[in-house]
Design a protein around this nucleic acid. Sequence first.
DNA 1: TTTTGAGTTGTTCGA
DNA 2: GTCGAACAACTCAAA
Length: 470
Amino acid sequence: MPSIAIAWFRRDLRLHDHPALTAAIEAADVVIPVFVFDDGLLGGRTASANRAWFMRESVVELSQALAARGVALRVTRGRPEDVLPALARETGADRVYVTRDAAPYGRRRDRAVAARLAAEGVMLVELPGLYVHEPDEVTTRDGRGFSVYGPFRRAWEARDRRPMLPAPDRLPSPPGRPRRPDPVPELAPPTADRGLMPRPGEAAARDRLDGWLQRGLGGYAQTRNSLGDEDGTSRLSQDLRWGLLSPLEVVERAGLGNEGVRVFVSEVAWREFYAHVLWHHPRILLEPFRERRTAPEVTSDPSTFDAWATGRTGYPVVDAAMRQLHASGFVHNRARMIAASFLTKDLLLDYRLGEAEFMRHLVDGDVASNNGGWQWTAGTGTDAQPFFRIFNPVLQGRRFDPDGVYVRRWVPELAGVPTARIHDPWTMTQGEQVAARVVIGVDYPAPIIDHADARARALAAYAAAAARPG
DNA sequence: TTTTGAGTTGTTCGA
DNA sequence: GTCGAACAACTCAAA
């Protein structure tokens, strides 16, 4: 009897440096690759048509890459805890290999799948691959999770890394006539513009990585905050999110270099830090990491949330960020912070509203990183910023988009505004507005809130939270 | 157990 | 225009 193994792909849609796939190939005479379109993920509250599109197209490419290596990807739709046991029964597989998922939904799903498989005598084998170090492997001296980034980073850096694995040449396939790959189901179209989204699939991701290592990485320390510089950041976030790239490979190939390299690797470590925090504290997806003395009384004006979400706050850099999100499914990191600060501090709305809105649109949307970023901005997270740190959207715009390139790109009605007024267009005289072909309050909104007033209100609310007993 | 040093991303004000 | 100080107190991690 040949031994048969299933390689179940999830958010690891690659062939390079894939420990679970490699282990399956080494262990079995026949490897059957599988992808399941999980109804539990496609329909959730923070599901995203943009993310689903990117995932679906990446699965199509994976299927082609596997076919070129002699095996057909099996593709199904349903609940994994139903699909995998049925497939194991049908194929006679006695093991299912997966890349270990650390996020709460994935953990629950894999526990359920493992239990159902075990009832049929099939083992679920989990291997690393989504992180350089698994979220539970980096611990303090007394074995607990870190909640401060600096010590985490030092411990993360000091740990030995597993060796990198090559992509397999061929996969051991069943004897007989080769099977055709299953068709990949069509999903709802993305809400963002396909032409503005990154090319899906492992090959495109590897091209991006190669280009970044050659051209962008060295200058990262200087360029990473520049909103107008399209190549100032790596643009690899969706590739790490979907496992088109192995973070280990990204970090190994970045190597040890100048300040740019160190800052870039530090960003990868931030991704792992937030996964680590979520591993140890899954409740943070529902509530603030630190409620006591940090979480202010929030307001709940739906009209201000709508203005924020649709990019009509009257603050150009905030609006550019939100329009970039909806148009392209991506936002520059600096712009994420500016938009998040505006929601949490200026509008004093619950950070969870913004967290969910980002998740509904970001192609790279990852619950751990997104939650970590929002709680950091809101001041309720681990390592949170001091509460008096409130971004001034005009100053942030001038500093990080000095020529107004970013604003003009995403807020086209401001294209004719002179650079000196691009971040505070409401200060233009009537005559200047006419000359710029934009009348404030008609063609583009006046600020929905005065930043100085909003800042004072936020400071008072956060100070009250800090003084609140218990 | 206690102590100590450290802690992503900023703004404003006054000299 | 530039510069430094103030804006708080608290918690974590390790010595």
